[in-house]
Structures are given as structure tokens and as C-alpha cells.
Design a binder for these strands. Structure first.
Length: 257
DNA sequence: ATGGTCGCGCAGCGA
């Protein structure tokens, strides 16, 4: 089974690129972020015609997450099930696809270290761990994929020597991400590749993609059984090329059975 | 050069 995650930066603007990618990558499950549309606008029928059932959690012009699956979608859960107040943003949707409990997550950007949005980001990662504790068991087959807006370590930023404090690489963000992983999840891409310079996002400005000035912030976090069954993982940087690309490349993992 | 490029939506914010 092939499970992918992709921040499409507006599904309306990216629909042709998504169709193209579904046709050649043939993923079984796709976790989308930043659809930037309402549930009423989501093209359920368009994906059904390509063999994918879908579940969407949108709010309109910002955020929005979805699951596409050609192996079934059971028991979709919108938002956090952690017993707290609802998240005001549409940033997580979960479902069971082909026996694996998947979540598509769009972690807040943070904006700046002294910004309220940074505190929201740290709290959001805490809520993600609480959501997993409330809804899953460590022994389950679980895959949490999405745009985490955090580089797990220095290999994941194009400029690891930049000592200026900034979002995406700060200690507190990395600790909050590590706390999610400590529940029982493995960064399956990193488990397959040690090298630096393997990025999943590049700014549209400054020709960042061609200079290889990127970040690896799009992650697939798998529970132990799913990580052990993952035999291949890739960031498809070809999808960042060409006409009207997203600023993120899709990442996928191939899982036995 | 203190910007640069997108998307949304029609000004200026968010990323």
C-alpha cells in the first residue's frame, strides 16, 4: 500500500497537478493539506471518478485537510478528539483506510518566535499527541502524515548553520514534535535516508528550488508495525517542477500488505 | 535591492 502526503497550497489551483500525480504515482491513500476550500467546494465526485473516496475538513480560504483513499475510508474524525475545545482551524482529519488509521495534519506555521501563533503551534502539537492517546493504541497500525512546519533536525534545513532563532528549527518546536513521536511514531523517510539536503518544501521566491534552499517539513510518522512494514519512501521532487507547482513536494511510503 | 512569489480575491495578509 502506498500512502502519500502533500501540501497542495490550494486544491483549486492544483487540481490538474494532483490529477497528474495520482495517475503516475498511483497512491492508495493521499493526505492533503491546505486545500483552501469549504466542504461544499471539495471535488468529491471528481476524485470518485478516479477511484478515490474522500473525506474533507475545510473552512474556506485558509487551511483545509483531506484524505483520499482507494482502499476505503471508515469512521472519519474531523478535528481533535482530545476532550478540549474545538480547534478554530481546519487542520486535522483522521480515518481508517485499508486497516491503517491515518491522519492528515497541517501544523500551524508559528509565524515568529514571539508571536501568539507560535504558542498556538506548540499547543497544537501537544493536542496532536493527546488526540493519538485518546483515539489510538501504540500497537495499532497508525500513520500520521502532513505538513508539520518543523524540521526534525539540522539535516532537514538548507542552512543548518544559521544560528538566528527562527521558526521551524527552534528547540521548543523540535521538542514538541519529538513528544508526538515519543508516543510511538517513526519518521519513516528519515529511517530510510541519512543524508542532508533532502527537502520537501521550497519558497517560491529567490529561485529557492533550483538553489536547493529548502526544508524537510512534510513528514510521514508511522507506528512501529507500519514503520517495520515500510520498504520504500520518497520525496517526489519532480512534482515541484513544471507549470503551477505547489511549493511542497509529495512524500510517500510503500508499506507491505 | 531590507525585496523577491504565490493564492485568495480585489487590499493586503499568510506562507
Amino acid at each position: 500500500m502506498r500512502i502519500a502526503t502533500w501540501n497542495v497550497n490550494s486544491l483549486n489551483a492544483r487540481l490538474a497537478r494532483v490529477d497528474e500525480w495520482l495517475a503516475y504515482a498511483e497512491p492508495d491513500v493521499v493526505l492533503l493539506q491546505e486545500t483552501k476550500m469549504s466542504d461544499q467546494q471539495f471535488p468529491y465526485g471528481h476524485f470518485a471518478a478516479q477511484g478515490y473516496d474522500s473525506a474533507h475538513h475545510g473552512q474556506g480560504r485558509w487551511n483545509g485537510v483531506a484524505v483520499l483513499s482507494r482502499v476505503g475510508i471508515e469512521d472519519p474524525v474531523v478535528g481533535f478528539a482530545d476532550g478540549r475545545e474545538p480547534d478554530p482551524d481546519a487542520r486535522i482529519i483522521s480515518a481508517r483506510c485499508g486497516g491503517i488509521t491515518v491522519s492528515s495534519v497541517y501544523v500551524p506555521n508559528g509565524r515568529a518566535l514571539d508571536h501568539d501563533h507560535y504558542r498556538y503551534k506548540l499547543d497544537w502539537l501537544g493536542r496532536l499527541r493527546a488526540h493519538l492517546e485518546a483515539t489510538c493504541d501504540r500497537a495499532d497500525q497508525v500513520m500520521v502524515g502532513g505538513d508539520f512546519n518543523v524540521c526534525p533536525d539540522g539535516r532537514d534545513a538548507w542552512d543548518p548553520d544559521n544560528t538566528a532563532p527562527r521558526t521551524h528549527v527552534s528547540d521548543r518546536e523540535r521538542e514538541a514534535l519529538q513528544a508526538v513521536c515519543d508516543w510511538g511514531l517513526v519518521d519513516v523517510f528519515r529511517a530510510h535516508y541519512d543524508a542532508d539536503g533532502l527537502h520537501s518544501w521550497w519558497d517560491y521566491r529567490e529561485g529557492a528550488f533550483y538553489k536547493r534552499h529548502g526544508l524537510r517539513i512534510d513528514l510521514l510518522l508511522a507506528s512501529a508495525s507500519v514503520a517495520a512494514a515500510t520498504h520504500f519512501c520518497l520525496i517526489d521532487r519532480n512534482a515541484r517542477k513544471g507549470t503551477k507547482p505547489s511549493d511542497h513536494a509529495p512524500v510517500f511510503a510503500d508499506i507491505s500488505q
